[in-house]
Amino acid sequence: MAESGVNNGRRRFLLASTSVMGAVGVVAATIPLVAYWRPSARARAGGAPVRADISKLAAGQQLTLAWQGRPVSVIRRSPAMIARTRDLDPARLRDPHSRAPQQPGYAGGALRAIRPEIGVLIGVCTHLGCSPNFHPEPGVDEFGRDRSGRDRSGRDWPGGYFCPCHGSRFDLAGRVFRDMPATLNLVVPPHRYESEQVVVIGEDEAAG
């Protein structure tokens, strides 16, 4: 009887040990699976919306931030800059109404923006991916030198963006001029306004 009790006790111990080890094995096998399905912090950050505080952004200035690994330029346009952009002869621009596909609806007007005074553009030239320089005033080249307000065609350039790699010029709304290496306007990313002073890059107005 004593030997039978010992055997029963040993059997219960072995069963319990096997159950515990099995549970540990299931947990160990599950951890890599959970980690696989859960995006890394870097992956989440790469596509996550980015908030920009524009409360201190003065007229004629821009701030640059990163979204999805690309630079995004947020510019506050002065009334004079808005007027120069609106009054620009559409015939001088390759795509004045941004009819190229995959652009938000608010990218179709002359200012390509939700709010006339705030422009939001991906700062990557649509030619070969260089970063255009911001020159808000007319007649200033990529080195800050006066060119008497003349572009390649001999007419006034209203200021905007100049690509130092191959000379493409864009206006203050990111619209490319004709006869430039770049053939597409600068991209307007999806964005919305969380408040009067905060713009969210990476979310469209419908997400607000």
Score class of each variant (00 low, 15 high):
M180G: 01
L14S: 05
L172A: 02
R92M: 07
I122C: 05
T126K: 14
V34A: 12
P90W: 08
A35I: 09
G154R: 08
A91M: 08
G160H: 04
G60E: 12
V198N: 04
G149D: 09
G174C: 10
R70A: 11
A207P: 00
H135R: 15
E3V: 11
V27K: 07
N133F: 12
L172Q: 12
D53R: 03
Q197Y: 07
P104G: 02
V200C: 04
L111K: 05
D204G: 14
Q61N: 14
V200H: 05
V26M: 15
T64G: 00
N133C: 01
A23W: 14
G129S: 06
S148C: 03
Y161L: 11
R76F: 06
G139M: 05
V200I: 13
M81P: 00
N133W: 07
P136V: 02
R152S: 11
R147P: 00
S19C: 04
G108H: 15
F162E: 14
G144D: 05
T85L: 08
V50D: 06
A52F: 09
E203I: 00
R192Y: 05
N8R: 13
I82P: 05
S55V: 06
V24L: 15
Y36T: 01
G60A: 07
A43H: 11
A29S: 13
L15I: 14
L15N: 10
D156S: 11
P164Q: 08
V198Q: 07
H135W: 10
A23V: 12
A59S: 13
P116D: 15
G129M: 07
R51C: 00
D87V: 00
R99T: 15
A2L: 14
P164E: 12
Y161H: 09
V176H: 08
R76G: 01
S168R: 04
V34F: 11
Q102T: 02
A83L: 12
W157Y: 15
P79M: 08
S78E: 07
D204I: 00
E3A: 13
V188S: 02
H97R: 13
P138Q: 10
A28R: 05
D151N: 14
G202T: 02
S98D: 14
W67K: 02
M81Q: 15
A28H: 02
R99Y: 09
R94T: 06
R70T: 02
P136R: 07
G208R: 15
V27R: 08
R44T: 03
V140Y: 06
A100P: 00
F134T: 00
T18W: 03
R175P: 03
P164K: 09
L128M: 14
V120A: 03
C163W: 02
R51G: 00
G119R: 04
R70H: 10
R70L: 14
V140N: 07
A45D: 13
I118G: 02
